[in-house]
């Protein structure tokens, strides 16, 4: 379970997050959505431990981040974070990196090697698994980052835009299915930021909509659609986040010379 309590954060003067409260139960998959620059990545960074909260706190499975060395270490063993652009050791091979991350998280050796092989096959990296990461394309590098996160078998995944970064359709589908399967397991909790509503609709247990540093709505995709009386999640989100957008579109298109 991830419990975010009265969370504030600012880099400079303007608060990036203001009094955010969100509870994600164990076994849930929650997607954070919202306009660019509104605090999605900051929220995920705070949950992942990359940033310290200015006020408030985060508890993961009953342990509070940064309260004590022991609790923080315990949390680190249980949480894996995939940033939107993960750093990769370009001189190492994909296989080496994935294995090393698995080992970091204490995955047992027998499972580690087997799991790595299956992941590399699933994401079409098997043929290039022994080539240096420097020789891989942008999309392949993103896949390596995803494989490295998935191999950890961590019970809590914090994923920042896992579907972006040049993934091909096959990888998008594979990742969707993997996340769905993980979410179906009771012990795995997933918090991720995804900007594409079509991907979210089928995946998320709940969608937290964040705007100007505040969570303005948090419910299942179906309920959000229903409450906004829209057919798709994208339209519903647009109505919540940018109620003025339809009028702006009409205005813009109406002024164009025909």
């Amino acid at each position: 379970m991830i419990d975010i309590v009265n969370l504030w954060h600012h880099y400079g003067v303007r608060p990036t997050l203001s009094d955010v409260n969100l509870r994600i139960e164990t076994g849930e998959l929650v997607v954070v959505m919202g306009p660019n620059g509104m605090g999605k990545s900051t929220l995920l960074s705070l949950v992942a431990g990359i940033l310290p909260p200015f006020k408030g706190h985060i508890e993961i499975d009953g342990k509070r981040r940064r309260r004590s060395i022991e609790e923080e270490k315990e949390i680190r063993r249980r949480v894996v974070y995939l940033p939107d652009t993960p750093w990769l050791p370009v001189q190492a091979t994909a296989r080496e990196f994935v294995l090393a991350v698995g080992r970091l998280y204490g995955v047992e050796e027998d499972r580690l090697f087997d799991h790595a092989e299956r992941l590399l096959k699933l994401f079409d990296l098997h043929a290039v698994g022994d080539a240096p990461i420097a020789s891989l394309s942008t999309g392949q590098r993103k896949k390596v980052g995803i494989c490295a996160a998935l191999i950890t078998d961590a019970p809590v995944f914090v994923l920042d835009e896992p579907f972006s970064g040049g993934l091909d359709s096959s990888a998008l589908l594979a990742l969707q299915h993997v996340l769905k399967a993980l979410a179906a397991r009771d012990e795995v909790t997933i918090l991720m930021a995804v900007p594409v509503p079509e991907l979210v609709d089928a995946l998320a247990d709940r969608v937290a909509i964040i705007k100007e540093g505040r969570i303005i709505a948090c419910d299942s995709p179906a309920k959000i659609r229903e409450s906004m009386q829209m057919a798709t999640l994208g339209e519903a989100l647009e109505k919540i986040i940018h109620p003025e957008r339809v009028a702006q579109l009409d205005e813009y298109l109406g002024e164009r010379p025909r």
């Binding site: 990359i50 063993r77 894996v80 190492a92 080496e96 990196f97 090393a100 080992r103 970091l104 490295a148």
Partner: peptide, 19 residues
């Protein structure tokens, strides 16, 4: 595994927030 890549080469973010 240890010879090919060491934990200190795992980089960001595993090195910073990993276990």
């Amino acid at each position: 595994l240890e010879a090919s890549i060491r934990a200190k080469h795992l980089g960001w973010p595993h090195l910073q927030v990993g276990p």
